[in-house]
Simulated scan of single mutants.
Amino acid sequence: MGKIYLDEQSLEQIVTLIEKQCGSQCEVVLHDLSKDYGETIIDIRNGHITGRKIGDCGSDFGLRVMRRDEADNDRFNYITHTRVGLILKSSSIYLRDEEGQVRYSICVNQNITETLRMEYYLRDFNNYTLSEEFKDDNHDNEILVNNVQDLLQELIAKGKQNIGKECNEMSKEDKLRLLDYLDQSGAFLITKSSDKVSKELGISKNTLYNYLEIVRSESNYTLNLMNKSR
């Protein structure tokens, strides 16, 4: 069977299908990843859930896909928390063009906050707790924001949290670990991200580029550092 490539009109039909089927508590987002990452959203339904609109940016997951572009980029049924405390069950698929490049993505974010509250109520009412095998505490929370500057700031904050230090407390190796994390997360695909990151780390842009050469020249740089410290 030959490959079928969908145009934007066909993709918008799919977005409409999901919206009509899943209702007002399901956000459906269509991204054009060939555009500047600060404005990839070309269609969005029920954007009130995350506060996003057409012309806003993609998430950190999309950046990673563009940075790494693995054979299977799709993700299903992962949990995301919004800035205002909503809990979302999310799935994302990435679609390629005729040249095999990732071009579009469709992301579905189902607001399950109220159904979870009902679940907690019923669990308390039933006096029953799920066994550990059904719990999913090990998830990587997706960052959903309106613009790429907020996205970059969130990535920096997550990197600092992983290292456990503020930038002004970091050694050179700490800064290399942070840059490795940001690079693997696709942060440097964001326009003028090097200005923000170098200022945050208190280093010059030349030093930043030198550090990036170091982390890119060693595979699994963070793992290597961890092994050296043992």
Rank of each mutant, 00 (worst) to 15 (best):
I14H: 02
S92C: 10
N206V: 15
L223R: 13
S185L: 05
K199W: 07
E114T: 08
N206C: 10
C26V: 10
E200C: 04
V29R: 04
K228P: 04
C107L: 10
V102G: 02
K160Y: 00
K35E: 05
R103K: 14
I163E: 03
K35N: 11
S24K: 14
Q161L: 12
N168C: 08
R177D: 01
R96L: 09
R68F: 06
C167Y: 02
R103S: 03
E114N: 09
K192Q: 13
Q13R: 15
L208W: 04
E142P: 00
R52C: 06
D97L: 02
D32Q: 11
N227T: 14
E154I: 03
S198R: 06
V197R: 00
H48P: 04
D74H: 15
Y94S: 04
Q13H: 11
D43Y: 07
S10G: 01
Q149E: 15
D69E: 10
Y211R: 08
E98W: 02
N73D: 08
R83C: 08
I190A: 05
D36F: 09
Y121R: 05
M170T: 10
N127A: 14
T129C: 13
D32N: 14
L6Q: 03
I49N: 02
L212E: 09
N147D: 15
I14F: 06
T80V: 15
E154H: 09
G55H: 03
